[in-house]
Amino acid sequence: MDFALIRMHGVSIGYGRPLVHPIDFELRRGDLWGVVGPNGAGKTTLAKTILGLLPPIAGKVEIAAGGLRASYTPQRHRLSPEYPLSAFDVAIMGSAALLPIGKRPGESHRRRVSEELERLDMLSLGKEPFRSLSGGQQQRVLLARALAADPDVLVLDEPAEGMDLVSTADILGFLRKLHGERKMAILMISHHLDDVVSTVDHLCLINQYTDTFETGPAAAMVSSARLTDLYGRPIETHECDGIQHVHVRDERP
């Protein structure tokens, strides 16, 4: 039985005022969660509360005994393009910062980071400036950085943000594969509802404007009624070749 890595009891999330009603939520080893909701719904606020970056307004966030290692990949647009860093510099940043104070990454750390870059087909671009990489390539580097830290919990904020169809499919496919290979909990925030529902096992629906916070197995959560409530617009779902598709009903006359 997989145990809870992070458990939230009656937690109110937000900056000063609660965004939604108090939340109960558990993240277990081996879970693959998607968090969806409209813009400004509170998805990133939820992720930051789970990670301990933002204190809850009320309630308790408990982490597994003995602590856990968490990795977070933020929305790429939040990273400054001014830093003259290579892709490898960015990828090794997480491991280097966790070393004892004053210690520099050794050969084993560099090898570990190189392995992750290799898995993500980014090793050949390791010396390229991070800022000159495409959005998809930057995302892979950030993912390599996150994975090189061997996290128990991996939280990805809009991993497919600004990516084309193929890059999106690649990154989500990689996450699916990663989930199969490693016993870590993955929580992915996304606007790409179609892609998320076909990737994750569990879904969390959140919208501060309708005071919505619902969780459950992805298949059960993707219903026209639920998504219509979540987005405030008529949304239809249908399944084709075993894959759930979601679209907004065109209300134009």
């Binding site: 990670l51 301990g52 990795s71 990949t73 400054s80 997480g94 910062a97 966790l98």
Partner: peptide
């Protein structure tokens, strides 16, 4: 790490 990506550093 904290300057370039404060949230990732904090999560770590």
């Amino acid at each position: 790490y904290v300057s370039f990506d404060p949230d990732a550093a904090g999560a770590a």
